[in-house]
Design a protein around this nucleic acid. Structure first.
Lengths: 308, 308
DNA sequence: CCGGGGTATGCGTGGATGTCATGGCCTTCA
DNA sequence: TGAAGGCCATGACATCCACGCATACCCCGG
């Protein structure tokens, strides 16, 4: 079979795989078995006459040919979906709809704040959002499933990925990492914490291998992790309950619950964190530009709020 | 099956049908049986949830839904083909390639003349051309198989078709119909022919029901058609051989073979003929604009040549 | 060396898609 | 008015493809 009449299902499956990074995950998302997905990809590769995926022990990665096909597949699938919507008489996925992806932290303050103000200034723009991990966001951008994404970046601030075409990334803000501790804690009476005082504490960290999320990176001891949690509210409530301390990006300060105090850390290198606004290169549709502006404004606004 | 995963083959078939205007012709062009095409279309209509074609005794016509689907199908198929070309490492159907369609008469003077001059001034532009009947040209434009087409138009100069979106048509030139007769003929000594002198001649006309092509439209007698031919060279050689006379558009004057004289007709209403340059509405790619300019220039240039 | 994450593949079955042949409808022409 | 010839639809097949299931395989980490 020539590539010119590959199956639309195959293209759709391929896009999903590219976005999930795993045949198995894509299969689950599509309601197929892993086997079916594997075969679809195999067929597509046969049609393309080249390997589209590089098989790795932890999933798959796109080859050069794969990226080529992905570009077109995304366009094709979008086009067909547009046709389907128009046929159904639906509002043809308004040009005024923006799909925004974000990493968990941004959902607590930046996203809601920006969307509220955007809703006021440009009520005609619809924003659909979705939380994902950073790699998932990057893949979704490349798969054309997202128009724009908020991505966290830490030193040495490399590009989100090293594929081509490179993503366009604008640094929205750079703030330093801070520490959250119970308001009742003796150290909370000061306006800052000395890095030396961080020793000996119990930490509340992120799940899995993300232990690094939540524990101060410059610690000169092996941290004792008392709890792990993915959810910010849960983490902060654990802090409020005096069960441990954790790190938080400065942006979260404004939405920290009662009983928690957030302080900057003195001594040691300052731990900077950036929030990037990333998208595929190319002309920026007007609604996307509006959303970007709203996000920038929200960042500025948050500076005027008390920073612990 | 939802429309969202219709088959690419079906879309391709559909485009072909839209271009040919007939299931049977599309089948022949694609190497399928008419039955297969019929089923493909049926399946597509089932997926679309609407009739895409209006069945008529002489073929099919697009319904509103059909036009909608055609728009998207053309884009989808193009996109996939582009992917295929890129995969094959081919020059990705240069943006600098223009596909031009023309009706038979234009191929004898306008097209060659314009292409030569375009080739001199913009050698980087590739033009692929194709002769077709006027309705075929119009369908090909709508199916996205041609970028631009030269179309003949006669009074009352209606639009090439009455579908939406309307085609953009620019009148390149308007010339009057003339008569070709043997250089040796007594009437050929004058610089014009009086309409009264057209009586009693033997005519060389177009094939089939196109008798009108070749016989002077204002004749007040039933014409005697001695020969029918589709090819201009054949027609003109028949004229040169003294086997009859025929009508020719003024543009052809410059390329008429020896032994043939072309004269305007006096008396009676002047028979005007227009050549339209037609394309789908939308932004005009730069190479297309160049080609259009070259065609306009060729028209102007031909005015400076002797007009019999 | 086993368990758990990935992907590939043999096997059986059902559906989709071809061809062939036929039938219905319409127009044209003798 | 009947025969011919254009068009499309459809019933009866054959074939093939793509699915699910189960299993094999590979690699890594504890």
């Amino acid at each position: 079979m020539a590539f010119t009449d590959a199956s639309l299902v195959a293209l759709r499956v391929f896009r999903e795989v590219a976005e999930r990074g795993t045949l198995t995950a894509a299969a689950a998302a599509l309601g197929y078995t892993q086997s079916a997905v594997s075969r679809q990809i195999a067929a597509l590769e046969r049609a393309a006459g080249a390997a589209l995926l590089e098989r790795r022990h932890d999933g798959v990665r796109l080859t050069a040919a794969g990226r080529l096909v992905l570009r077109h597949a995304a366009a094709v699938v979008d086009q067909v979906d547009a046709a389907a919507r128009e046929l159904a008489g639906l509002p043809s996925e308004d040009e005024s709809t923006v799909r925004l992806g974000w990493f968990a932290t941004a959902g607590a303050w930046l996203v809601p704040q920006a969307l509220v103000s955007l809703g006021r200034s440009h009520p005609s723009i619809t924003v659909v959002t979705r939380e994902s991990s950073t790699p998932a966001l990057v893949r979704a951008l490349r798969a054309g499933t997202l128009d724009v994404a908020l991505i966290a970046s830490l030193p040495p601030f490399r590009a989100p990925d090293d594929e081509t075409p490179a993503l366009e990334a604008e640094a929205l803000v750079e703030r330093s990492l801070q520490v959250a501790l119970p308001a009742s804690h003796p150290l909370a009476r000061n306006d800052f914490i000395d890095i030396a005082d961080l020793r000996g504490h119990r930490w509340i960290a992120g799940p899995g291998d993300q232990l690094v999320m939540g524990v101060w990176p410059g610690l000169d001891e092996r941290p004792r992790v008392a709890h792990t949690a993915r959810d910010w509210l849960a983490k902060l409530q654990l802090v409020a309950a005096g069960l441990g301390i954790t790190t938080v990006p400065a942006g979260l300060v404004a939405v920290v619950p009662a009983g928690v105090r957030v302080l900057p850390v003195r001594g040691g290198p300052s731990e900077q964190r950036r929030i990037l606004l990333a998208r595929l290169p190319g002309p920026m549709p007007e609604p996307v530009a509006r959303l970007a502006a709203a996000l920038r404004a929200a960042v500025v606004e948050s500076w005027h709020q008390p920073i612990g």
